[in-house]
Write a protein that binds this DNA or RNA. Sequence first.
DNA 1: CGAATTTGACCAGCGC
DNA 2: GCGCTGGTCAAATTCG
Length: 392
Amino acid sequence: MLRKDRAMDSTKKDEDKLNSTKCEIYEAKEENERLKKMLSKMMKDYKSLEMYFQGILTQKNTKNIIATSNNIHEEKEEVELVSLSLGRNSSTSRELIKKELLYDDQNKSNKNHSKLLFDGLELGLDCKFTQENSFEGPKKENINNERPVLIQNYPPLDYCDEEFLQQIPQKKARVSIRAVCDTITMNDGCQWRKYGQKTAKGNPCPRAYYRCTVSPSCPVRKQVQRCSKDTSILTTTYEGTHNHPLPFSATAMASTTSAAASMLRCTSTSSTSQQFLPNIDQNLHGKINFTNNTSNNNLLLATHNNSPTFYLPKTSISTSQSHPTITLDFTTNSSSTNSSSSNSHSTLCNNIKSEIGPSSYLGRPYYSNQPYITSKEQSEHHRSVQWQNQNF
DNA sequence: CGAATTTGACCAGCGC
DNA sequence: GCGCTGGTCAAATTCG
């Protein structure tokens, strides 16, 4: 009898084991399927970006040919808009994305992603304007240094007529982002090299100067400085337009700064956000959707009505400096003018706190008498984050 | 040893 | 013209 019971126990255990193994196999299969889908989605994203880039290059070539034949000498004063211009899609990219939408019709998740991508490309303020939005590089470098000059056709915007925009002095626009961040710089996905540090007047915390090193000729610079009153707040000021394809993880921040710079160029006088927010809000609120939902380290996303959405932070514009500057303040939740979005805005702030400047990162808050964490350390951390994202 | 960072010097713009 | 300030350069230094 006892032997029989033992035999039954053993059989039961075997069955359990078999079931759990089956379960594991099933889960592994599911995981495998999920990874396959993700991989194919990533490949699709990569291809669409590649095609988008090719489209831009083609546009550039066409433009150069036309300019040469017409002997237009104003070419050098034209727009520089490349990778940062995710928000201002050319007709080529629109068609491309529409095609992708159709193509993705069978795959719901991909479709959602494509919709997001399409929405993201819709974020542009659709202004048609010309700008010189870049740092003047070192004079030596500028000599014979031809940067890609790209022209894109933007549909006109209601509140931004061309004549008006042409009257705005073409100063170098800057986008300043204030966020709580324990690290030396915000992890914005780009590679930067420090080229200077200076103690500015009125702030004991030194200001660090970085230039983008993704491309040797990239004119983009950024300044990083701690707030003197609250050293947990980091102010990062971006200037210029990337002239190279951005790493996917950098598109979120690039879109933010690009859209903000567009806002800046669409306002003629110094003002606080409240003076022009109705227009800006119409165009930004709920429309800036960062497309980067595959890598989590840089998302400026908030979720609203089940769709990832950008919420306008406390925004101010200053033209008192030699450079017109727009400041996006992510340090406070109360800044949101839309009470219904406060939760989402809070989420966004938290995202910035935790994703861009992970407090756990190295655990070395900056103090003015301490050495900076090197960008190399930062990039290594970034690489590890990317690796983790890729490998889940 | 090469690459990245630091830091003093230099330059340009601006206000007086 | 002078001084102040912000921004950049480049030699020296540090780091991996």
